[in-house]
Design a protein around this nucleic acid. Sequence first.
DNA 1: TGCCAGGCCGGGT
DNA 2: ACCCGGCATGGC
Length: 231
Amino acid sequence: MDEKEVKRTLLDIYRHLFTEYGPQHWWPAQEPFEVIVGAILTQSTAWTNVEKAIVNLKSAGKLSPQSLRNLPERELAHLIHPCGYYNVKARRLKAFSEWFGEKYDDKLETMFSHDTGPLRRELLGIYGIGEETADSILLYAGVKPVFVIDAYTRRIIDRLGLTPPDRSYAGCQALFSLNLPPDAALFNEYHALLVRHGKEVCRKRPLCRDCFLNAQDRDMSDGLFPCSVIS
DNA sequence: TGCCAGGCCGGGT
DNA sequence: ACCCGGCATGGC
């Protein structure tokens, strides 16, 4: 497949998914800091369990960087118990909160005003933040045009034969980043749709290129698309 | 009942 | 530079 074909394929997949599922309204959180907490808590964990943990944090009035810093790790672990891995995740939440306070005085606006590349490297230096979590923070909390690669995304591009030879995170990310317009709203919706599709279909039955590309054409002029890029 | 979910770290090759 | 065990709950 040449480059033009890859670009067209990626947009076709997006169109198909959006027509099929509609807007996903990600990230499921009320404020950016909650996105960051959720991104850490959902590591290898079902979102339904994360919701319980977030509710606990909110009810206890501890869903803020200051509260997380001041809360003893054991008590934090207790609050987030339903989402599993509660000891490591308590440590990770505190690690982020401490870094965030020291480095940015708990100000998201200051943090996200930095260039995305350097900020990403900073995030990766924090205990408990790897590539996917860092990119989720940049995209869903910071509204930066950074494509998130997760297990669902990998499965889907695998079955479409689009996975790059080295199978690396950076390579998978480049597939999307270099072949789509760098639009945060598009990256947001696209990744959310991949996860939605993965949950509903990908594990239950085979997924091939035809599932997407031979899908019947539908009217695309109804204004449903979340960004102006697709029209 | 067993398998797995929107990963990441650290120690061992 | 990879590989793998550990971390843990709740839902199907």
